[in-house]
Structure formats: C-alpha cells, structure tokens
Design a protein around this nucleic acid. Sequence first.
DNA 1: TCCTCATAGTTAGGCAGCCTAACATTCACC
DNA 2: GGTGAATGTTAGGCTGCCTAACTATGAGGA
Lengths: 146, 146
Amino acid sequence: MRTETEDEELLALAQSFRTTLRHAVYLSRSMDHDGELSTMQLSTLGMAADAPLRVSRIAGNLGIRVPSATEQIIKLEQAGLVSRHQDPTDSRAVLVQLTGKGRAAWEEASRRRNARIAELLGQLDAEDRAAIAAALPVVAKLNRNP
Amino acid sequence: MRTETEDEELLALAQSFRTTLRHAVYLSRSMDHDGELSTMQLSTLGMAADAPLRVSRIAGNLGIRVPSATEQIIKLEQAGLVSRHQDPTDSRAVLVQLTGKGRAAWEEASRRRNARIAELLGQLDAEDRAAIAAALPVVAKLNRNP
DNA sequence: TCCTCATAGTTAGGCAGCCTAACATTCACC
DNA sequence: GGTGAATGTTAGGCTGCCTAACTATGAGGA
C-alpha cells in the first residue's frame, strides 16, 4: 500500500521528469543537423545495420506507423543508403537492408553524433556523469512498460 | 589532460546517451495526446502562467524561432487560452497572457500529464526512481551549456 | 531634429514527418 | 478453395518547424 506522502513525492518527481523530458527533446532537436541524416533516418539505418529488417519492425521500433516508416525508407532508398527486397519466407514482407554506402554513411554520422554528445558530457564533472550513466538504463525500462 | 581510456569511456557513455535520448523523444511523443494541448502548447501556457511574456522570450525558451512561436500563440489565442497585448513600455513588443480559461486548461492538462508520468515512474523500484531523480538536474545543465 | 540601424513581431511560402483511410497482395487456417 | 488476418503502399491531410521579406517602433548619433 502506498501512502499519501509517497504519492506526493511521486507527483513531484513526475513534474521534474516532465520538464526534463522537454529538455531532452530540445537536446535531441539541436543534434538533428549534424549532416544530411535526421535522427529517425539514423536510427533506421542503425536497426538495419545488424540484419535486414521488415518495415513493420522498423516502424514498431521507431514508434511510428507503418506508412510513415515506408516514407522514410523510400527516402533512404532514393538516397542509395538502403535496398528493399521481398522476404523469401513471406512474400508480403519487405526486408530493408543497408547498402555499402548506407553503412558508411551510418558509421560516419553515428561517429560524429557520438563525438558531439561526448563533448557535451565532457563538460560535466564525474559525479554528474555518473548520475547520467545510472539513469540511462532506467529510461529504457520506462519505454518497455507502457 | 585527458587519457585515451577516459575518452573511450566518454564515447561509450555518449552512445548510450544517444539511444536514451531517442527513448525520451518517444516517451514525450507518447505523452502528447492526453487531450487537446500539445507539449509545446502546454509549455507555452506554463511559461505565461507566472507572468505575461514576450513572444521572443517564449520562442527562446521553447528553442524555436519567433515566427514559429507566433504561430503557436495565435492558435492558443484563437482557442481562447491566451490574450495578446502591446507592451506598454515598448510598443514593438507583444505580451502574451493567460486567460482564465487558459489557466484552467493548463492546470488540468498539467495535472493529467503529471499523473500519467507518475504512474509510469510508480512502476519502478525505489533505486531506479532515485537514479532518475539524480539525473534530472544534470540534463538541465546540458541544455544550458551549448 | 532627422537619419540610420537595431529590435519585435507578423506574414507568406515551403518542407519534413507524422497520421488515417483505402487498397493490393499474400498468408494461414478451416 | 474461401475467408479473415497480416504486410506494405498510395493518397490526402495536418502540425510544427524553418527562412525571407515586411512593418513598425525604439535608440543613438550627425
């Protein structure tokens, strides 16, 4: 059973969390112009980097609908970064695969973006960095729950 | 002077941070349909809640350009949530002020959104919540630096 | 005073990214 | 073999951001 005080503390934490979520979105947006690839496109490439992936899986992982994913993938295809093939085990499905150019672009953009974030995090002292490091896995949990 | 190992650790942290940033954006987007007000609109109302605010200040706080802020504010005005007045001390400037209806809508939406986040955070154990709480102020620092 | 430059905001036009609805195709199962 | 589910694509629309161009006002010097 939860007490009233605990509920109030939780709400206060939620309030701060909400503000920080907004900050995170700004941060993310400010990172979004490191070159030609948007964050979403970068994520898409990153997913397909390990193995060819279905459109529906990409959409699911990105948290967007299938038509929106199709749109992004078509753009990436037109840029020569991915190729689309029919899934041999299910002709309805389409497998999205990185091209050589796509892999190179992904690695380069990924490297550059990590460097920019590292620079940002490098301005923090060790204690603050530790706080960040401890919180990262927890945020991932939050996304799996709902 | 920074060692190579430290640099590598920093890059690894940056990589995780980047992933989590994406998670945060998803979380934020999933919160974005709790009613009629978008996150940006909610933030705008929140800013004007304390005192009437200039359009340029709102844009700056939101991290967007002035014309984009004007657009949002006009929508809020049309919805009857804010009013716009010429600044008496500078006729070029426009002060954005909450209406009664705007304040009520903001409080209601804010309360609802906090409750949803609290519910999410409530699923975490105390240790995880502490990790989140410790990291929140650090993210705010990151936004002030760049 | 008047001229010039800076500042505040709006308008116009464009683009990216997301959505739903409707559709074709294929699969799975009875 | 026929029916319903699953996978993508297409079409159309909306939101929210941007830059460029404009108006109006303020500030400061010749």
